[in-house]
Design a protein around this nucleic acid. Structure first.
Lengths: 237, 237
DNA sequence: ATGGTTAAAGTCAAGATGACCTTTAAGGGG
DNA sequence: CCCCTTAAAGGTCATCTTGACTTTAACCAT
């Protein structure tokens, strides 16, 4: 394979892959799905899941297929978007490999990730990775960093936070999504005002849910809008 | 070449190119650089400039090289960012070609675009293209549409509008950038207040410039910040 | 000087935001 | 049963931002 790849590269061809930064929230922490590589290069290192793009599938389809293979999630109740292309010549020691990175966000993604490649897949707290300035395989540190920044800013301008919450959800649960991903606390009262007044962010179900302690919380579902105007900025104070 | 490409695709390889949506403002209109294709496929059609990524260059370097070849601009005083990857299987009739689209923004880009491939390059008003729901080669309509939307939203959250203005510039010139790209008029007074109060958007030079008519305008340069907080939203009213 | 033109600065009401407080509705312990 | 704790839900208020609009400033041509 390496030889064929090398020959192909001479005429300007590249291997094209997709890699996925799949985020979910478990146990109050932002988790990313990592696999352990079973073969060279970077054998034994952690990496983002991914694989080759097949001949007659779109890049998005390739990403969805890999997502299904790695997590068993069909991707209907899940946000998937392209993050960007990464193709530095040295990023893969085997030769020229350009990867299209995707960002996937979902609620309650399964723990036991089956599938062939994913035998050693596991959820890892993102905080744990950035703390040790981790070294994932290839340039996956950089992809993960870009993905994290993308998620953080998407919470500002879009209503995508709702995909992290299994429906129906309470406003406290939604607020916890922001707090975990931004790493700072938000004022519960102001958050409620902002979310309920923003057109199409959440729809009330009319139901309530008893809490472990305190007043029962009203339940909501994801609303119809994807954009959040005006935005909910993390910058201040 | 087609035969070799077809064989390569069988083993999962693709041709990787970069395509550029290069915008500038000329004569009060937003212009994009298009070339006329000299060979099949899509011979005679207009297309975004671009070309193959070379063996040992990064994607960004490839984009900068193509930019230089097509426009003669060295890219120092110019904004360049990746837009995304486009790789639908049918997008190029020759076979699997994945392109990494880039967005380039600059002031005063030259009219006479020299270079080999660019013999038939020309600036085309974007308005003219969207009016006729243009048909560019490949999927370049979609790339151009995505690029245009990206520029419009970048004006909201970043200070990138300044790259369209040759320095030093007046606030009216900067406002004209917003007005041309968003296709709506802005209140001059409110725009001034917003821009001058935003930290690091523009730096006053202390100089003035006489106008064709009316009071002389103060001159500014691009400031140190790239982000604009709070944003300048186009949505309202 | 006078009026036209554009830049620059000011006014004001409406809306959004951050900080903080009060009320409501549950469960649990005495 | 009453009171305490807890968290949701709702309210207050000063500050900031925004949009619409008005006023003043500086230059030119006549």
């Amino acid at each position: 394979m390496d030889e064929r790849l090398a020959r192909a590269v001479d005429v300007g061809l590249s291997l094209v892959t997709v890699d996925l930064a799949i985020f979910t929230i478990r146990n109050g922490a932002l988790m990313v799905l990592l696999i352990e590589r079973g073969e060279e290069p970077f054998q034994g290192h952690s990496a983002l899941p991914g694989g080759r793009v097949r001949r007659q599938e779109t890049l998005d389809q390739g990403a969805r297929r890999e997502l299904l293979e790695e997590t068993g999630v069909d991707g209907s109740r899940l946000h998937l978007e392209q993050l960007g292309a990464f193709g530095d010549p040295g990023r893969d020691p085997r030769g020229r490999v350009v990867t299209i990175a995707y960002l996937a966000l979902g609620a309650d993604l399964p723990e036991a990730v089956g599938g062939s490649d994913a035998a050693h897949a596991r959820w890892v707290p993102v905080e744990e990775l950035v703390a040790v300035s981790t070294s994932l395989a290839f340039d996956h540190d950089r992809i993960l960093g870009d993905a994290l920044e993308r998620v953080r800013e998407k919470l500002e301008y879009t209503t995508v936070a709702t995909v992290f919450c299994p429906e129906p959800f309470t406003l406290s649960e939604l607020r916890a999504v922001y707090e975990v991903i931004w790493g700072r606390e938000l004022d519960p009262s102001n958050f409620r005002r902002k979310v309920t007044k923003a057109e199409g962010f959440v729809d009330p179900t009319g139901e309530q849910r008893a809490q472990p302690a305190g007043r029962p919380a009203a339940l909501y579902r994801k609303g119809g809008s994807s954009m959040l105007t005006p935005p909910l900025l993390r910058s201040v104070s």
